[in-house]
Design a protein around this nucleic acid. Structure first.
Lengths: 339, 339
DNA sequence: AAATAGTAGTTAAGCGTTTAACTATTATAC
DNA sequence: GTATAATAGTTAAACGCTTAACTACTATTT
């Protein structure tokens, strides 16, 4: 690999001059530029990024952090949308993405990750931070590195989906259809802040409608998976066969539930309404298509990255809460009068 | 950030000794180790990765390259599975992933990417390389960086899914069910090597069964999307209403086709068999569940990463072709005798 | 004509490691 | 008791870049 020194020699100038030309720092003639450039060209010179990083302190590297918790990170369909959003912003600015997927336990993230984070190797960080178990972005970890959290972690700068508004809208939809005997399919809510918020929303709307949320039939041992949606709906309907609607905390569980109730001979939405949350690809494709909440995940990624670059630019961007969108499809309808 | 020098001073030794202790290079006493370690501890020393990279030439960074071609990279459902596989291997070895998503045009990948690749900043590369349009891993680009291609790019080291075996198995399944009037839904085959291979497989089996593949009704202006599957199936059935089976080049188009033919009043699989390729999540969920080919994408990622680390270790791993698995589900059945 | 400001380029220090080459001490062999 | 080998640690060069401080001109101002 040719170095600055070789370019300088070939061009007949000093390495400082070459550096100036390449970084467009003022004060050189067109003549010099030409000489330098043609030397660069001939030698196929490329800057050594490690050297540049060491010297300037700028790595042009953004850490994108998706903690690995209860399941593989990439099995979460939202992750890819978020990544897409972040990627677009970084690409536009010539920044590279270092993808970090720390194992998160109750002791916090793994040692590799801690070191990476504290090493100042990353100019900035965008992290999914939604897990009460532990933050990948706690103040002691992130130190001086600008960071944006996607989620409910307690951070000065964050982007969130409006889970409260989303769950409220979803529950209002179900209740306004006339349902009152409503079952809830969810996961251990200590797992996820956004799940907790969704419960708050469901609760509020239920109470306003005169329903006691705490007493609604619930299955809370799901794990986000399709299988647990099947299991949960079976368990609920076994004890409460008069339910006219199932509100599920995510789409995969909702799709599992639909399959299960169909297997049990019920029609969706005629016999029972089932709604989800997330609007994954399968939600639109499924038959019946799933009524659900679109979190607009790519937007989460875009906004988070934009905020991060604002921070790097010494601006002070406001945190953002992104409104969700109710997608009414085929899986929800008024309850049958007969039941 | 404390440096080696500060640690050395605090421990009362030279920086070379500190470096030796930390890298476990022989020849120091237990006593020294203790002094160094406690200085490290007290100061919270962490190595500067840029400096280390400059000095040692090792960045501990693996480039994972997903070219951005006709559509956003992350809209391809396989990508996340592959990423999952690569991530697991890198994580186990303490390597970090630099995620690169070059824009690929007929001039090759964009300039940012070229520079990154040739800068020796990455110790190794795993790249999706399946596009005749241009390689992200051509010899001139990758130079001395060890690289593993996932796909059909012409490289010394690659991992491929066995598209020939997959498509053969798929077509054999359809033909063995008794179908002879078969339509093909595909994309411009100049877009993708693996698509080309799938055609070869379909062709072979068709010919063996006495069908002229070239004359089978085809829609080849798809773009992998659900919408184009709907469009393509509509177009085909308009001209050939006697088709008893549609073989689709990927799952999303197949799912689109199912929706479309259902909309047209046909039953799947009673009136028409529809099969896909990929086994995306929705394939299992859809009703009817889609008969398709499972490429075992996570395995592609695992194997590719393992090969790369073998290369870094100066071994000479063999390239790998990963067999696929036919998933027979509900969307395929023998043709109705009446039609 | 001297002082000042602007332009063009150079010198050299510094970024924080790694590591080859060296010195000094101690243990082992004969 | 010396030669040799092994051990423990140090010195200093090197990695390739950025950038502050400097010199040397040329153009402008007064």
């Amino acid at each position: 690999m040719p170095t600055l020194a070789e370019v300088a020699e070939k061009a007949g100038v000093s390495i400082a001059t070459v550096s100036k030309v390449l970084s467009n720092t003022p004060y050189f003639t067109e003549e010099t530029r030409r000489k330098v450039m043609s030397a660069v060209e001939e030698l196929g010179y490329l800057p050594n990024l490690a050297a540049r990083a060491l010297s300037s302190g700028k790595t042009h590297l953004i850490g994108v952090v998706f903690p690995y918790v209860y399941e593989g990170i990439f099995t979460d369909p939202l992750v890819q949308y978020i990544l897409e959003g972040i990627e677009a912003e970084c690409n536009a600015r010539g920044y590279n993405i270092l993808l970090s997927t720390p194992r998160l336990s109750s002791d916090g993230p793994d040692e590799n990750y801690r070191q990476l984070l504290r090493s100042n190797y990353l100019e900035g960080i965008v992290a999914l931070d939604n897990v009460p178990l532990g933050s990948v972005l706690s103040p002691s970890l992130r130190k001086n590195t600008p960071a944006v959290a996607i989620g409910y972690g307690d951070h000065p700068h964050y982007v969130r989906s409006d889970d409260l508004q989303g769950s409220t809208t979803l529950m209002e939809h179900v209740i306004s259809l006339g349902h009152r005997r409503i079952g809830i399919l969810t996961v251990d809510e200590s797992l996820h802040y956004s799940i907790q918020m969704r419960h708050v929303g469901l609760d509020q709307v239920a109470e306003e409608a005169g329903l006691n949320y705490a007493h609604l039939p619930k299955y809370d041992r799901g794990d986000f998976s399709i299988a647990s949606g099947m299991q949960g709906s079976a368990a609920l309907l076994e004890h409460y066969d008069d339910l006219t609607a199932l509100v599920c905390i995510n789409d995969r569980m909702a799709l599992g539930a639909i399959q299960q109730v169909q297997k049990m001979g019920l029609k969706v939405p005629d016999d029972i309404t089932i709604v989800g949350y997330d609007d994954i690809l399968s939600a639109q494709l499924f038959s019946p298509a799933l009524t659900t909440i679109d979190q607009r995940a790519p937007e989460l990624g875009h906004q988070a990255a934009q905020m991060l670059f604002a921070l790097l630019n010494n601006e002070n961007p406001d945190s953002v809460v992104i409104p969700t969108q109710l997608r009414v499809r085929e899986s929800s309808a008024p309850p049958k009068v007969s039941r």
